[in-house]
Design a protein around this nucleic acid. Structure first.
Lengths: 321, 321
DNA sequence: TGAATTTATTTGACAGAGTCAATTAAATCG
DNA sequence: CGATTTAATTGACTCTGTCAAATAAATTCA
């Protein structure tokens, strides 16, 4: 019989991981990274890749990055030199080293390989409808960050996300991530998730596209942030439910969401933006402060199982600006 | 500048996939599946694995499954035979084939390898806190089913899920999946997601653990179903928000959720369960019918951008049973 | 400074992983 | 029955990767 209450049994998880490992190994093997009809082996392709993505690397640098035996690598590079794919110049700093570069034809060979590999992946992605592609990327991203892929975080830069209006499913994401994150980070109880659910329910029910907005920040197809601009009165807008996923913090997404709200409120003719937050939410308070909001009221209260100090912030909008 | 509106540009997704492939290849390579100090190569271990999981396979069967060259495999099997790890018996049906089995010591070798591999994965999982483990498994499952791993689906059987009470984040999941699935499958508009958000908001606000329940069905750490039992009146309970993810359908999860509601309502002393559904939701209606519910009222209405026929179903509970 | 040690690279020898073609013997097709 | 196909084996070979030795430049330390 299926147990009602979860026991922390690792065994099925271990099996799931191993099943996935077997599956994914085969999957990657089937892709073969564009070298099906090329004269390069997988290792050679990896070397070529690193050569194309580094500035004047040395052989030992490549060996370290790729985890290759120095002798093996030396032979591969020798072969490349013979084929005229790489050139080398002696290092000024260290007479033992050579600084390696791809020649014209070396770069051409890499481009060809790279284009083929991209095409393969594009075909694989193309077999999936758009929302499933997004789920796939999101899942890969999740695995990468959970298993600690430093370069996954590195690769995220300021232009790696986009803002878009809400779609089916997004409101649930907003509710769930508010509930889970505030429970985890501040120990708030389920009343908070309920409050958020009430807010989004109200938003969807009374949603007026001419007076209100929701933005979802998306990165690699995965939701990483949200903010709402709702009508508080004819002339006053309210900013609500600002959230940025921990793993996407530090990219300026929060500031961007707030700025977008302010810009839009001004455009829609509001005179003032108001918002309610808590004194413990330091990161959010900073964002409001830097966007020009001013603290106008403080109010201690007990909510979500904690003693909190609620704060009202306001930003006056000059219509002309 | 970051674009406001999403354009369907594959390039960043392709890069994300390739980054993940590189990362995961290295990750799996680092795991080495328990054969670090064993006398087996990776391929030999894979052969051993298949031998341990099949009934009297033939060499060609193994070769097909593992994608190995027949000659290569023949040599590996020859080695195993020499070491006394596999035995073979001639096939009655086909004189060219031998039916392979692991000997005692072959099985022992496999068990050792298997235990080591499990231990490795367990250590990796152990480094993650419990909720992150669940996210990891969920993400792997998502990738597996998106890229079409038939055995991932196969492996799901009736005892592969569990029911548990709700946790932070679950309500958001319920809202989001209702919103996304009904939009996708029936074309309902965002008003429906708003309605669900309102229901869960109300549920959390008034939640009385003695009179009400929520069950979340979880599979490999991923939410795949939900149902709520809420108080309608002193003697009448209401079943709400029954949902099963498409990929988890056919495992009896829906029936199980309904049965759990009925059992619990009876135990809590309710005299009747009522529920509201729509005529187009055939699968759900079947479940209710088979659980003993009876259709007591029909009501055409226009909601969620569609013309629908709402239905009220009821189940009388005999207190003694 | 200069001898000892370390480091970057190359080379030779070799083992393991995997492919390809040829061979044998049994099974199947027509 | 002869022709073709299939399962399994074997030999020859290539590619992948490791290990140890050699060389030359750089660094350390007394």
């Amino acid at each position: 019989m299926v147990p009602i209450v979860a026991e922390l049994d690792l065994a099925p998880r271990i099996d799931a991981v191993r099943r996935f490992n077997r599956f994914y190994t085969r999957h990657v093997g089937a892709l073969n990274e564009g070298l099906l009809e090329s004269r390069f082996s997988l290792t050679e392709a990896r070397v070529l890749y690193e050569l194309a993505h580094r500035e004047l690397p040395t052989a030992s640098e490549l060996g370290k990055v790729l985890g290759l035996d120095a002798g093996y690598l030396s032979r591969i590079l020798g072969g490349f030199r013979k084929q005229g794919l790489v050139g080398s110049q002696p290092s000024q700093a260290d007479g033992r080293q050579s600084l390696l570069t791809l020649t014209e034809s070396g770069r051409a060979a890499f481009e060809l390989l790279d284009a083929r590999a991209r095409k393969e992946i594009a075909e694989m992605l193309g077999r999936l409808p758009e929302p499933e592609q997004r789920r796939l990327i999101a899942a890969m991203h999740a695995i990468g960050s959970l298993l600690g892929a430093p370069e996954q975080a590195e690769a995220a830069d300021k232009s790696s996300y986009l803002l878009r209006p809400h779609q089916p499913g997004d409101m649930g994401w907003v509710v769930g991530r508010h509930g889970a994150l505030y429970a985890q980070e501040y120990g708030w109880d389920e009343q908070f998730e309920g409050l958020v659910a009430g807010i989004v329910a109200e938003f969807l029910k009374r949603y007026d596209p001419k007076r209100e907005r929701c933005w979802i920040a998306e990165q690699d197809g995965e939701n990483v942030g949200s903010v709402f601009l709702v009508q508080h009165s004819k002339t006053v807008a309210q900013l609500r439910l600002l959230l940025v996923e921990p793993r996407a913090r530090g990219l300026g997404i929060g500031a961007r969401l707030v700025a977008e709200c302010v810009r839009c409120a001004r455009q829609l003719g509001y005179r003032k933006i108001t918002l309610w937050t808590q004194s413990v939410l330091h990161a959010a308070r900073h964002l409001y402060e830097r966007a020009g909001f001013e603290l106008v009221q403080e109010q201690p209260h007990r909510s979500f199982g904690k003693d909190l100090i609620g704060e009202t912030w306001e930003l006056k909008l000059t219509p002309g600006a």
